[in-house]
Design a protein around this nucleic acid. Structure first.
Lengths: 234, 234
DNA sequence: TGAATGAATATGTGTGCACATAAAATGTCA
DNA sequence: TGACATTTTATGTGCACACATATTCATTCA
């Protein structure tokens, strides 16, 4: 027999509270007891309860407000985490051989739709890069990228035959904020040619935009080859 | 002039360390000083550094191991969080009118591809539900769902004219584990009819599977109408 | 040599305490 | 009555300390 731990861990506390929420002992939208009362009830300190609560809040189960107390979310959400590695790593993790090919690279003022992604209006001096990632010589992902040259002039010196813009940026240009959008598009003629698929084929597309502080760094539209699946981190 | 806080908050500490990582003061894969040493250097307690480190680890910037120490991830990842609300809430949050329509509901043994989602082999007694979510009377999302009847027999008593299976499950049937997959499909004839779009149109699809402990609860394939975009929580 | 053993060590966690802070609740005054 | 100031209160945070636990690393013994 396994003796229960003499002292309650914050994980135990979290699990107790979570179980109560899931069992609707604390119903949707209900207010939970104060941390201190829960601590007294369960026989641990407020610190431990606090810790458990933090975890539940991060998981999107409860909502905490100073003075307002802790409430179960009125309407529940499913929260998932997605990890997006450098494309090279992603391909290699599948046990496939990675390669990439530069399609185009030219300096140009950013058009309005691109600036919209950054939430800005005024056009900026950018580098526009097209590139194809390959897995086992087969098209894997097609990148259409814009890099802000005012905030990342070093990119001009990079040899994209050696390293993809994707990887160079991730390794050399940190960001503090990222926004991503996922959607599906039908392959147009050019995309189909690049990805070697039928025109019209449904392709998962990820749009990723990053900032360093408030300064735009890069935005990329990555179109995956047919069959691509994005999964949540278990 | 704003006097700097006499005491360092864990957020300050986190930002200092993060800045160092981003500036590559601690390069990719590099080992960070022990919490205690950092605490001494920065002038706070180990508790505070620990807290900061936890946050950085959760953000996917560093990797911590007992005795092994703290390392910057060798190859960086972009980690994003996605919140998926009940479809009704999602529609209403867009300021649109929600409705749903039951398409089909029948008891059947689960076929192999469905069991594969649960990571199981043996077929089980399930309820197979087809439903359409509408926004402003227009098709918004098409659901194809399977519910394990051994673990959720109550679903048989639910009137899907009153509440969608999606919402009923979220409100009454908790889960402890969820896995999601995102991909793009071309609308087949039947899907196109239901969603009132062209056959072949690219549609974002979300596959969601939940368990309570090890017990399968439900798995759903939700096909969104054209134009649907899934965005990360800012 | 190589597997088993044991010590060393960095992170993980619990307790107890004090004070900070945001927001709700209450009170005050024109 | 309504705008404003004040108090109250639940969560947020920092500190100091002790002990737990998972690894790594060195040591021992067959």
């Amino acid at each position: 027999m396994t003796a229960p731990p003499s002292r309650l861990s914050w994980i135990d506390v979290r699990d107790v509270i979570r179980a109560r929420i899931l069992a609707r002992d604390y119903g949707l939208g209900a207010k939970l007891p104060r941390d201190e009362d829960l601590a007294a009830e369960l026989g641990c300190t407020r610190t431990t309860v606090h810790r458990a609560m933090q975890d539940l809040a991060a998981a999107g189960l409860i909502d905490r407000k100073r003075k307002g107390g802790t409430h179960v979310l009125a309407d529940p959400i499913t929260r998932a985490t997605i990890d997006i590695p450098v494309t090279r790593s992603e391909v290699q993790a599948l046990g496939r051989t990675y390669a990439h090919r530069l399609i185009s690279s030219q300096r140009a003022p950013s058009p309005a739709p691109i600036m919209a992604r950054f939430g800005a209006a005024q056009s900026r001096d950018m580098l526009h890069i097209g590139a194809l990632h390959l897995a086992d010589q087969k098209p894997y992902m097609l990148e259409d990228r814009w890099v802000d040259l005012a905030n990342c002039p070093e990119i001009l010196a990079v040899d994209f035959a050696q390293i993809s813009a994707n990887e160079w940026l991730v390794r050399h240009k940190p960001y503090t904020r990222v926004e991503m959008r996922f959607f599906a598009i039908n392959a147009d003629a050019e995309t189909a040619t690049q990805l070697r698929c039928r025109a019209g084929e449904a392709l998962l597309t990820v749009e990723r935009t990053t900032w360093l502080g408030d300064a735009p760094i890069t935005t990329v539209q990555a179109i995956a080859a047919p069959g691509y699946v994005l999964a949540t981190k278990s």
